[in-house]
Simulated scan of single mutants.
Amino acid sequence: MRALLQRVTEAQVAVDGVVIGRCGSGLLILVCAMQGDTGAEADKLAARIAKLRIFPDDAGKMNRSVRDIGGAALVVSQFTLAADTSRGNRPGFSAAATPDEGRALYERFAQALVGEGVPVETGRFGADMQVALVNDGPVTIWIES
Results as ranks from 00 to 15, higher is better:
residue 25 S to E: 15
residue 52 L to T: 01
residue 37 D to V: 03
residue 51 K to G: 14
residue 133 L to Y: 13
residue 68 D to W: 10
residue 24 G to P: 00
residue 79 F to H: 01
residue 137 G to W: 06
residue 75 V to E: 06
residue 89 N to G: 14
residue 54 I to D: 03
residue 67 R to Y: 01
residue 141 I to N: 02
residue 68 D to V: 06
residue 46 A to L: 11
residue 82 A to F: 04
residue 107 E to Q: 15
residue 42 A to P: 12
residue 10 E to Q: 15
residue 131 V to F: 09
residue 53 R to D: 10
residue 5 L to V: 07
residue 142 W to G: 00
residue 96 A to V: 02
residue 99 P to G: 04
residue 102 G to R: 07
residue 103 R to M: 07
residue 143 I to F: 11
residue 139 V to S: 02
residue 134 V to R: 06
residue 97 A to I: 08
residue 114 V to Y: 05
residue 128 D to S: 13
residue 113 L to F: 14
residue 138 P to L: 03
residue 59 A to E: 15
residue 14 A to D: 14
residue 33 A to L: 08
residue 10 E to P: 05
residue 53 R to K: 15
residue 113 L to K: 14
residue 124 R to N: 05
residue 142 W to H: 05
residue 141 I to K: 01
residue 80 T to I: 01
residue 24 G to R: 11
residue 25 S to V: 13
residue 105 L to E: 08
residue 125 F to L: 04
residue 136 D to T: 02
residue 118 V to M: 08
residue 115 G to T: 08
residue 130 Q to S: 11
residue 130 Q to H: 13
residue 79 F to N: 00
residue 71 G to I: 10
residue 44 K to D: 14
residue 112 A to D: 14
residue 3 A to R: 07
residue 55 F to K: 02
residue 19 V to G: 05
residue 39 G to M: 06
residue 14 A to S: 15
residue 124 R to G: 01
residue 9 T to N: 02
residue 7 R to T: 04
residue 138 P to D: 12
residue 96 A to H: 05
residue 46 A to P: 14
residue 134 V to F: 15
residue 129 M to K: 08
residue 82 A to D: 02
residue 121 E to G: 05
residue 87 R to V: 04
residue 10 E to L: 09
residue 99 P to F: 14
residue 111 Q to L: 10
residue 8 V to E: 09
residue 91 P to H: 01
residue 142 W to D: 07
residue 97 A to G: 04
residue 117 G to P: 11
residue 103 R to K: 15
residue 113 L to S: 09
residue 126 G to P: 09
residue 83 A to F: 06
residue 81 L to M: 05
residue 81 L to Y: 03
residue 24 G to K: 12
residue 102 G to Q: 03
residue 18 V to E: 15
residue 3 A to W: 12
residue 66 V to P: 02
